[in-house]
């Protein structure tokens, strides 16, 4: 909540107020269908583009500083580059994620949101992408060394493996590792053991994410380690 309260309301930039974007095929195979007008801009994760009109211009840029981008590539799971899409005439753009699941969009309105590695899909130009240190415990817990901090004004789209559900946390809550997708800055995240040290290491429910509120968290109904385990068992 480092944004001052006097943040200007979204300005009317002699064009229509909001880019028209609809999320289709929810929740299993969600994708974002965007109608670009001249002057509109959308920033998306490097691999997110599924299809686009021939006149859409795509520009690749670093998402943040060079060093941070490198670190992010190594530890954070997010792509090194983001693509900036614009069009000189009305055009359409479809963005999607590599895995089956839902896409959620949030209008930040000056607020901040933390995204887990790999969750970021796209945002409007008013949104600032920042990389934050998530801590050693988060890394051990399989959640990555870094987390993406999105702040500013505009919509941000993030993706999940499976469905997305939210929960208002007032006190403490436990999420299995890999299920957390995004959370508000008022949320405190710690990695802990589900049970005692013995049952944690041998009982299958090893490490869990301990979430303390107040605030809202976004979770995905599936997790990737579950998928890989399932695949390994069936190969």
């Amino acid at each position: 909540m480092s944004q001052p309260h006097s943040v200007l309301p979204p300005v009317c930039r002699n064009r229509r107020f909001i880019i028209e974007a609809t999320t289709r095929n929810r929740p299993s195979f969600a994708n974002i269908h965007i109608k670009l007008e001249p002057g509109d801009k959308i920033i998306a994760e490097a691999d997110a583009m599924a299809s686009m009109s021939a006149n859409v211009q795509m520009q690749t840029r670093w998402s943040g500083g060079v060093m941070k981008a490198v670190l992010k590539r190594v530890f954070g799971g997010e792509s090194l580059f983001v693509n900036e899409f614009s069009a000189p005439a009305p055009a359409e753009l479809v963005l999607t994620q590599p895995f089956p699941g839902d896409i959620e969009s949030i209008d930040l309105k000056g607020n901040t949101l933390f995204l887990q590695p790999g969750a970021f899909l796209a945002c409007e130009p008013g949104v600032t992408l920042g990389l934050g240190w998530a801590g050693m415990a988060s890394f051990v817990g399989g959640e990555g060394l870094f987390r993406l901090k999105v702040s500013g004004n505009g919509r941000v789209w993030f993706s999940a493996y499976g469905g997305i559900f939210t929960r208002e946390i007032t006190d403490e809550y436990i999420v299995d590792t890999g299920h957390l997708v995004a959370y508000e800055p008022t949320i405190n995240i710690r990695v802990g053991m589900a049970g005692g040290i013995f049952s944690s290491f041998f009982g299958g429910e090893g490490l869990v994410t301990k979430v303390r509120g107040p605030g809202r968290i976004y979770m995905q109904s599936r997790n990737f380690s579950g998928l890989t385990a399932w695949m390994n068992a069936h190969l």
Binding site: M1, Q3, P4, H5, V7, E184, T186, P214, G215
Partner: peptide, 17 residues
């Protein structure tokens, strides 16, 4: 700069001074 959580606020929370 900070914020408030209260049920009377739309959405339950808001940034605040």
């Amino acid at each position: 700069a900070g914020g408030v959580f209260h049920q009377s606020i739309e959405g339950g929370r808001a940034t605040a001074t």
